[in-house]
Design a protein around this nucleic acid. Structure first.
Length: 418
RNA sequence: GGGGAGAUGCCCGAGUGGCUAAAGGGAUCAGACUGUAAAUCUGACGGCGUACGCCUACGGUGGUUCGAAUCCACCUCUCCCCA
């Protein structure tokens, strides 16, 4: 609260899409400065998906900004939804996850989130604390506070309604439950991505209905995934987890479309601010090589979630494996021990090894990879060469490096005589 | 309560008795080209076997048939119209 209004707004506005409504937010901050009472800044998290990826870090960073300004971060664990289970999934038989699992997942989340926020200064609340005790009468009061028409304003509801895809009544209850969280903790501000705008707005309405001053919303941009099109999410498998191995994190960044460089640099790295337009323009007119810009971005991202040394190592690994098309350094290749019972007639078939390791999910996939020309074998002391025969058998001693594509590599160690 | 339509592989979506492991598209994987980008081209894309092959699969169960994703019955789920 030592920070002036202007300084606070400066930091808060950075990277945000919208402040709803900005005038109210300014009033809240002013009041906070006058009274010395920090604002309660809410963020919701889903205990069913505890792994944090780069997309999540955008809002978390904003939460960190608020913390740095002296405000109170409140993490809401949506454990109540875990108890109900999700009926829209096919496996409605699936048991709702238990309390221990929720706790464990939440802890995983906190461990990862502490790479971005100051976890020790944050407050953690589980929403079952206030949602579980509600009785039907309480639920009626809550549901009376909102209309079907407003509910159908939400884009995906509207679309599904129009297209005739099912919407269960319970799904209407989720935004209301989430809104009630804001009532329960008397949130001043809630953070969320643009996809959360509707849900957060419901929070404002419900708070008013319950006689509270409505929260202000800080809407953050969504981060596109590694495909450059859809938003980053685990289920689309286009994410970069902040616990991904450094070289993997670096590699995934490099595989990202060029168009993302400016945005990612701004939203994910802590690099000094440059005009995104200037960077993009530089790439367009050729004065900045996109690969260099992307390498710098990848480097900074690894550095942020690991360390300088890890970033250097990841960059070297990348240059070696992909630019120079060399094998990764020995100590980074997973090992597989070939024991006696795997060997017949003094050898072992390549497809058998591949299916037993990370190289292929099944023998069929292994065979296809060989037929596609993507499998290479480098005996212990020899040169690497492509395997073209599906039935290829490696003769003892089977020491060497087996590779499928550029990314999947395994080191075989002969243990047959042990 | 009445009437109508529908449920297909990771997703979308063709297919109305054998030639269908199931068109087409998307996603994905490998190869070529490259900057592990984009674009383009090639191939693969349920499991197991070297292969002729076998097994599993078109909501569920049972049936008709030499043979069913395709026909019949019942069940489950969904959408639309009417009340």
């Amino acid at each position: 609260m030592e920070q002036s209004l202007e300084k606070q707004l400066d930091l808060i506005r950075r990277n945000t899409v919208e402040l709803i409504p900005e005038v109210e937010l300014i009033e809240k901050i002013k009041r906070s400065i006058e009274t010395g009472v920090p604002l309660k800044v809410k963020i919701g998290l889903d205990p069913n998906r505890p792994d944090i990826h780069l997309g999540h870090t955008v809002a978390l960073q904003k939460l960190r900004d608020f913390q740095d300004l002296g405000h109170k971060a409140i993490l809401i664990v949506g454990d109540f939804t875990g108890f109900i289970g999700d009926p829209s999934g096919q496996d409605s038989e699936r048991a709702a996850i238990d309390w221990d699992t929720v706790r464990a997942n939440a802890q995983t989340y906190f461990d990862q989130a502490s790479k971005v926020i100051d976890y020790d200064k944050a407050e953690v609340r589980y929403n079952s604390e206030w949602l579980l005790p509600l009785n039907f009468k309480d639920v009626l009061r809550l549901t009376r506070s909102f209309t079907v028409h407003r509910m159908l304003e939400r884009d995906d509801f509207e679309t599904r309604y129009r297209e005739g895809t099912p919407i269960s009544i319970m799904e209407f209850l989720y935004p209301l439950a989430q809104a009630y969280d804001s009532v329960a903790i008397e949130a001043d501000i809630e953070l969320g991505g643009t996809d959360q705008r509707f849900n957060l707005m419901v929070g404002r309405t419900i708070q008013e209905r319950y006689g509270q001053e409505p929260q202000c919303l800080v809407i953050m941009p969504l981060l596109e995934g590694t495909d450059g099109v859809r938003k980053m999410s685990k289920s689309l498998d286009n994410y970069i987890g902040i616990t991904d191995e450094p070289h993997d994190m670096y590699g995934k960044c490099m595989r990202t479309p060029d168009e993302l460089i400016g945005k990612w640099r701004e939203l994910v790295t802590l690099m000094p601010h440059v005009e995104r337009e200037a960077l993009d323009a530089g790439i367009r007119d050729g004065s900045i090589h996109p690969m260099d810009a992307k390498k710098a971005m990848a480097f900074e991202i690894v550095k942020r979630f690991y360390s300088d040394d890890d970033a250097v190592a990841a960059q070297e690994h990348f240059t070696r494996v992909f630019s120079q098309r060399d094998l990764p350094p020995e100590d980074m290749i997973p090992e597989f021990e070939v024991t006696g019972e795997l060997v017949t007639d003094g050898g072992i078939r390549v497809i058998d090894i591949m299916s037993m390791t990370e190289l292929a999910k099944s023998k069929g996939e292994a065979r296809r990879l060989i037929e596609g020309g993507g499998v290479y074998w480098k005996p212990g002391d020899g040169e690497e060469s492509r395997i073209t025969d599906v039935l290829c058998t490696l003769q003892q001693p089977v020491d060497g490096i087996l590779r499928a594509g550029k990314r999947r590599v395994v080191k075989l160690i002969d243990k047959t005589d042990v």
